[in-house]
Design a protein around this nucleic acid. Structure first.
Ligand SMILES: [Zn+2]
Ligand SMILES: [Zn+2]
Ligand SMILES: [Zn+2]
Ligand SMILES: [Zn+2]
Lengths: 165, 165
DNA sequence: CCGCCACTGCTACGTTATAACCTGAACGAG
DNA sequence: CTCGTTCAGGTTATAACGTAGCAGTGGCGG
């Protein structure tokens, strides 16, 4: 695999991310690649300090700014998203077209049972938001939409249990 | 005025809040009333530590737990909202019906020029969210919707200026 | 009187995020 | 080549946000 320690799927996503950055004239350096790999490899949102701890295993001397700078870069590149309610980060599931100059409009479904976050991109929600903003004369730039509830997997489990670990 | 140091409008809202709490069997104590007054009296979202500083002017010995406990209470009572993106609090503009047992579904428009936040409650957005969640088999409990952009007042100003202060 | 409860005071601590300053590598202009 | 500039990252310290835990007080019902 291309980056030891990461899953096959994560490695594949890292390769795509690297390409996407090249096309945009930015560099997915080794450090940024590691941080992105850690985010992608986690099936739950990852906090900055969780990432820092894991990063330190293979990157001695990492400090808060180390990981926050990498996260800022990855956010700018649209490779990850921040879930505000959790102060945590998730990998972006969407393909990164050559031309994407500004972030796409996504929404997040946060399961309060298992902690997993699903990224969706719902046209209806986006249209409704644009409409609502326009009604108030508000010039909409972007929106944070984070729903909390119970995911399909957890809803199918007996109460008290949580799907998949 | 009923509570010295607050505007007439804030005082009126405080009276309403006090009544609403009585009906629900909870107490809007003097401390909680002061914190609510501070939130309502501000035309921008107020951070917890900003509130703490202002609270100390009339309430010697206040510490972080003092203000956070009051904020928790006010959130539970639906008297204020937290704006996650700003880690700050705003007063709720809606009337507090006797029967409201769970929080209402509101959205926030955050102006990046002047910093003001407008609370709206848009049926279209709420319907779209319910619909989007259902499509993924997600049992929606509540949603954080925080739009960023430029408010009508700021959009009418020359670039570089910001409306009202 | 006594136990219980809601509220508050207070100390300390945990978590999240950024400021400020410095080093070194890469690269083109002069 | 040497300088200025840009970008990435190391390092230290600190700001900003939030909570745990325990003690005291005062009301209220047994
Ligand atoms: Zn995305
Ligand atoms: Zn779940
Ligand atoms: Zn409200
Ligand atoms: Zn504005």
């Amino acid at each position: 695999m291309s980056t030891p320690g990461f899953s096959e799927q994560t490695s594949a996503l890292l390769s795509q991310a690297s390409l996407a950055c090249s096309r945009r004239g930015t560099q997915l350096t080794e450090l940024r690649r590691k941080v992105l790999g850690l985010v992608l490899d986690s099936d739950r949102p990852a906090g900055a300090y969780d990432l820092l701890d894991r990063l330190r295993a293979h990157h001695k001397g990492a400090a808060p700014p180390t990981v926050y700078r990498a996260l800022d870069f990855l956010l700018e590149q649209g490779l990850i998203h921040k879930v505000e309610r959790l102060s945590a980060f998730v990998g972006c599931i969407h393909r990164h077209a050559d031309d994407h100059d500004h972030p796409h409009a996504a929404q997040f479904l946060i399961c309060t049972r298992c902690g997993r976050v699903t990224e969706i991109e719902d046209g209806g929600v986006n249209r409704a938001l644009v409409q609502a903003a326009r009604q108030g004369g508000f010039r909409l730039a972007r929106a944070t939409v984070e729903a909390e509830g119970v995911c399909a997997a957890c809803a199918a489990m007996p109460a008290g249990a949580s799907a998949g670990a």
